[in-house]
Simulated scan of single mutants.
Amino acid sequence: MNKYKVTGTIKLNELETKEVEKKAKKKLKAIRKKISEIQEAMYAEGEYAVLICLQGMDTSGKDSLIREVFKNVSAQGVVVHSFKVPTELELKHDYLWRHYIALPAKGKIGVFNRTHYENVLVTRVHPEYIFGEKIPSVKSLDDLNDDFYKNRMEEINNFEKFISDNGTIILKFFLNLSKEEQKNRLLRRLRLKEKNWKFSPSDLKERKLWDKYQFCYQDLLNKTSKENAPWYVIPADDKPTARLIVAETIYKTLKQYNFKEPELPKKYKIEIENYKAQLEGEK
């Protein structure tokens, strides 16, 4: 999956937004069963957690990707968090606090649908949002310069290194959607009555800031893709293919850890026939 992995400096406008894999849906069914099996072994072993980070422009397909990729994983084995506008309580803590307390326990897969990167993305496009954090050193918009966000990205790198060093496997996916495809998906929400509820006028306001968002995404991808927490840029115009690529990346990464269920202690193992006899002899 190195084809999609950010290992050097990238330019988003030079990367493909569409790939079409034949029989993507059929292939995904097989892969997600394997992910489920790995998660069960990972849970039994109890040494690692997995954090999946999903970012992308509106309509890039994050929600449906989560549904389809993790469909076979036990409901107790995967935990999804969708981060919205910070609450009053969350704003009373540092910006990473709400993400830290949502991290998956060992043995589980955690999915962040929108992530801690919103703090160097939305807040960079709309810097006035930062004032809600009441940071002592931030007095005006002039304080929210490139150095501020560069420092914040370094803090995020340190955060990810810390949790990685302590047993969390991190995989980050940017769903790379074209502006034309976003237009088509927004129009679909307006044309289909059953999809109307998904539309918000704010979608159009944010769409006007497309170029600024692309710049911010490109910058964070280049500054925060590390070996312990790599970014993958996934062509997202074709949803079935995007889901398959993400699933394959997750599977191939986790397969390398060779998770195994622990063996029954020897003192119990030698008594298995006795235990069976006790149960079979019950009346």
Score class of each variant (00 low, 15 high):
residue 142 D to S: 15
residue 161 K to V: 09
residue 68 E to Y: 13
residue 6 V to R: 05
residue 115 T to Y: 06
residue 268 Y to I: 10
residue 81 H to F: 10
residue 141 L to W: 07
residue 46 G to W: 06
residue 241 T to L: 08
residue 158 N to Q: 15
residue 42 M to K: 14
residue 276 K to R: 15
residue 124 R to T: 01
residue 217 Y to H: 01
residue 211 D to Q: 03
residue 236 A to V: 03
residue 211 D to V: 00
residue 33 K to E: 13
residue 211 D to N: 09
residue 50 V to C: 11
residue 240 P to L: 07
residue 83 F to L: 05
residue 153 M to S: 11
residue 220 L to P: 01
residue 135 I to K: 12
residue 232 Y to F: 15
residue 268 Y to H: 14
residue 26 K to F: 08
residue 21 E to L: 09
residue 143 D to Y: 07
residue 218 Q to D: 02
residue 198 K to C: 04
residue 114 R to E: 01
residue 28 L to K: 06
residue 11 K to C: 06
residue 250 I to Q: 06
residue 33 K to W: 10
residue 114 R to P: 00
residue 7 T to I: 13
residue 95 Y to C: 05
residue 46 G to L: 06
residue 171 L to R: 12
residue 173 F to P: 04
residue 22 K to I: 10
residue 256 Q to T: 14
residue 125 V to F: 02
residue 62 K to F: 07
residue 108 K to G: 10
residue 167 G to Y: 08
residue 238 D to W: 12
residue 217 Y to C: 01
residue 62 K to A: 07
residue 80 V to T: 14
residue 255 K to N: 09
residue 12 L to N: 01
residue 37 E to T: 13
residue 270 I to M: 12
residue 247 A to D: 04
residue 207 R to F: 00
residue 13 N to H: 06
residue 220 L to G: 02
residue 117 Y to C: 03
residue 83 F to R: 05
residue 224 T to V: 05
residue 266 K to L: 12
residue 234 I to G: 02
residue 67 R to Y: 13
residue 104 P to S: 13
residue 53 C to P: 01
residue 264 L to E: 12
residue 184 N to P: 00
residue 279 L to E: 11
residue 149 Y to W: 04
residue 251 Y to K: 13
residue 31 I to C: 11
residue 203 D to L: 02
residue 114 R to D: 00
residue 70 F to L: 13
residue 26 K to V: 10
residue 78 V to C: 14
residue 130 I to V: 15
residue 14 E to W: 08
residue 98 R to A: 03
